[in-house]
Amino acid sequence: MAEVATSASSSANSSARSDPLLVVVDPVARRTDGESVRIAKDVLSAGASHTKVCLPDGPEEFARALGRRGSRRPVVVGDDSTLLRAVALLHRQRELAECALSMVPVGPALGLARSLGLPTGAVAAARTVLDGAERRLDLLVDDSDGVVLGTVAIPPLPVPVPGREDPVSGPGGPASFRPWLRTCQSLVRTLASSRPARTALVPGAAGPARLRVEVDGSTLVDLDQPVEGVSVTPGAAGAAVVEVRPLSVGAQASPLTVSGRTVTVSGAHFRYRADAVVCGPVGTRTWVAREGAWGLTLPAT
């Protein structure tokens, strides 16, 4: 794991923040958008009194760098999965309540970062790290000690996966020097496109589900009422927002929406999506909303 320590120049010291930064750059961000990573590092190094940059090669080094932050304020550079990994690590170490995270979103999957209010431009995001304010946010903790920052979806709704370049036929790839290979690939694609389209199946997402949903001990929907979907989202003041969409027969059924601190879902083994991760199958799962459980640096208002 590469580490680089930098300090603000003397001309910038008068305006530099006094708290030192630990900047942990996810390897995927370095590969997918190295230019944004470079810009973010330059802005942070110029604006903070002291900046230590860590370039972990994998999850273990990422966890080790975060665990050795000392008095430095952690700044993660990466996409939604990077933020989720950092929050989960701090939660497991029982250090989340005392640690304010900062993030520079870089990468293809930034839906969660946007929903939390983070700017996605490298310069604006780095300036937010330096000039923003910590905001305490709610989250969900399940009975397996997992954390959810955004939404739990049952059944798991598909998550759009950004397109990736074909490693063989992409620009500059080996196929650029093999015209015959390009011809073969084109023929295969043509044959594939002539077949009837098949619907991509998401595990656990086929057909209605029969689930019991309990909020603070009261049953919202029981096993005898099939549902099209259930979502659980951190709300405000330590409450989770639960929405149940009953299976519509004829006229469209209105969703049932309630708020509560503890949500338990049970029934036949089901899968669910927590943020962007599909989990399960499980027979029962309980989520508890925790008020102000973590801190994130957001643009000052």
Rank of each mutant, 00 (worst) to 15 (best):
C99A: 01
P20A: 06
E95M: 11
L90C: 01
V215G: 05
P156I: 13
L149P: 09
S194R: 14
V75S: 08
Q185H: 04
P174F: 15
L66T: 04
L66Q: 03
V277F: 06
L247S: 10
R285H: 04
L211N: 07
V232P: 11
E243S: 15
Y272G: 00
P108D: 11
E35K: 03
T257C: 10
V278N: 00
L187E: 03
P196I: 05
L157E: 12
A122V: 06
L96K: 09
G58D: 11
T120L: 08
G238E: 09
P208M: 10
A209F: 07
V213A: 03
S259G: 12
I154E: 09
A16S: 07
L116K: 00
V53H: 14
R182V: 08
T297C: 02
S186Q: 13
A268K: 00
V227R: 08
D216Y: 07
L89N: 06
C54N: 15
L201D: 04
L22M: 13
G163C: 08
P156N: 11
V87M: 10
V161K: 12
D142K: 09
T32S: 07
S49E: 13
V53W: 12
T128M: 05
Q252N: 01
S11M: 13
G292K: 12
P174R: 15
A153S: 11
G78E: 06
L96T: 07
P179Q: 10
G204V: 04
S45D: 00
T199F: 04
P299H: 02
T6L: 15
A63Q: 09
T120I: 08
A236F: 08
V24I: 15
P119E: 11
A65N: 11
I39C: 12
